[in-house]
Write a protein that binds this DNA or RNA. Sequence first.
DNA 1: ATCAATACTTGAAGAAGTTAAATATTCGCC
DNA 2: GGCGAATATTTAACTTCTTCAAGTATTGAT
Lengths: 388, 388
Amino acid sequence: MFPGIDSGTFAGPPAATAVFTTVLTEGPVSRVALARRLGLSSAAVTKAARPLIDLGYLHELAATERSGPGAGRPASPLAVRAEREFFLGVKITADEVIGVVCDLRAQVHVSARRPLDAPDVEAVLTEVGRLVEDLFDAFPGDRSLVRRLGLALSGDIDRGIGLVRYSPFLHWRDVPLGRLASQRTGLAVTVENDVKALTAAEHWFGEGVGAESFALITVGTGIGCGLVVNGRLVSGSYGVAGEIGHLTVDAGGPDCHCGGRGCVEAIAGTDAIVTQARDHTGRPDLTIDEAVALARAGHEQVRAVFTRAGTAIGCAIAAVANLVGPTRIVVSGEGLAAYDLFDSHIRTSFERQAFGAAARCPVSIRPLPFEEWARGAAAVSIQSLVVP
Amino acid sequence: MFPGIDSGTFAGPPAATAVFTTVLTEGPVSRVALARRLGLSSAAVTKAARPLIDLGYLHELAATERSGPGAGRPASPLAVRAEREFFLGVKITADEVIGVVCDLRAQVHVSARRPLDAPDVEAVLTEVGRLVEDLFDAFPGDRSLVRRLGLALSGDIDRGIGLVRYSPFLHWRDVPLGRLASQRTGLAVTVENDVKALTAAEHWFGEGVGAESFALITVGTGIGCGLVVNGRLVSGSYGVAGEIGHLTVDAGGPDCHCGGRGCVEAIAGTDAIVTQARDHTGRPDLTIDEAVALARAGHEQVRAVFTRAGTAIGCAIAAVANLVGPTRIVVSGEGLAAYDLFDSHIRTSFERQAFGAAARCPVSIRPLPFEEWARGAAAVSIQSLVVP
DNA sequence: ATCAATACTTGAAGAAGTTAAATATTCGCC
DNA sequence: GGCGAATATTTAACTTCTTCAAGTATTGAT
């Protein structure tokens, strides 16, 4: 029924899957609360939970809080035994691979990175293999508790079969990365688009928990978007989804390499910001960090570049909110290291452009440590354990 | 188990619902094909289908085509008995109510309309009541086969409880239209936003059949969008979804009443087209029909207005395609009566703006008879029978 | 006529969930 | 300290739905 450590996937009756997923994502919950939440009888929850407890995936917490006004038996909340199993997550970029080891609750225990010099399949597999070894070496726990590896990279990915359909930055087409990495490492491998992986992580373990629908906007060199609608990740039929980088947001904006004009990416992408800051300072070698420093120091024109970028991002978010109406929105990415320069402008612009009540949608804005991408990959791997 | 004509909702075991929905939407299918399609055993399909046949909702068709290479018992495809039950659908606009009677397959049998002079709740209920009477009078079949009424109107609607949260054009807030109309007519009433209703109709009975995800763009006075993602209609958390009218699509476009500039609606909305045509002809009383006639007759500048509108619509579609990646797209609405003036420009612009393979997404463009809106309402009513 | 192929049906067996009753644990109150 | 009300969990009998395996039905090809 439920798998021992050796069996491949984790398939059980629907109720068991629902119970496990809910406990995993929504923290310790009593059986009665689970029953209410999932529309099951409490008897069904008891039965579904037992094998999960026997296998060590769940355990009972000591009763803590008193519930009602007066009396009653205290609940014994079910919680995930986070250290029952560990998961590897690796993000592949053009010039390095970044990896983490996470527990069942997607907490990072170990991380590592390796440079990547050639983008060919063999080189990537080799470096991923070495990175996995590094992670295993650094991992203090029992190796046999690690059976799964998630890979995340930018591009058109078929998660179901672990196929990289097309990766522009690696120049790959139709590479069966899942199968290859599995042969190389001996682990069960999942492959997912990086933005979608991050969205999945946020959906199960971050701010998206409990939201019927939400949107994750990533700001960096490019501007991306991951969507969850009706509780499910949006995949897109033709390998395309969440492409918001080339939405027009500023009628009088700069030309974009896509051929359009005033695209978000041409205003708020990291490269665009650097280019604009260089123009305004006359320093052709200005870096993004220097631009941030200048803006913080009060350089009017450079500051205006960030203001404009924040406004552009706000417009893009509003477009997403108007179209799909998410319950909440998270804005994240390396590009938000200069968070303080963006925050208020993103919000103001969003609220002005959002339609009616959509403006009330909570928006979280926060920078994203680079390891988060790898954690996203691990999160997908965790999902693949629960919902194969 | 399954309802006789008197019982309220149509709730059965999951397999029965799945079988009925599939036969309803995907035409005659054999039991074996259903089993494969739904991941059930053929025994389960047989058992699920029996009560549906007994109740007259399904029937067996004569075997028609030979299947495989040589031999085998021919299939007896299951089909919906379309005239087993009929459904009323009514679209409410600012100045009239339009109604239809549809069969189970959403084929229109009767239609009617009545003017509406006051937009207050009482007046609308009265006219809807009269329209229902008109439809009943004109309906040639047995009245007892009609038990359900769908209402569709623009605005923020809670379909679940039949509540009109906010309707700008009627100036309504929190009107429990479902309950009121049910009391008035004695029918089971569903209420849905008009664009979503049309999307639902297209999803079950139109070009959206079988598509995991698709988008319906309506072009008229406003520009709207209905979405189906992962097989489910997108509702939006704050009463907002599918608002694409104010996407910026033309950097140098005209000002829009929303405060922005170059919005789709300010370029391709019916009012915007008329305004532009008036400017170009110097005739302040020009109607939309006259503008269409002029364009068809070759009036350069007026023609250019339509070209520009088509281009703007194409941009908007591309934005939707890039964000959610639908399997297919339908562009429709009264505004496309001048279909021939738009078609190629919409396509060209869409293909230019769509990202990568998304440009391959099939786009259907066609005008929409006004009764289709009422049919959409009826379709929601049909859905409410099957999936309460 | 017989065989192979395919479609459908049947009845026994099994899985998953429900209801109702029993058990467990607490609080407030005497 | 004991008792009753309140809440949580478990147990056991039962219901429902589904599959499995074996049979029946119907056809084309030989």
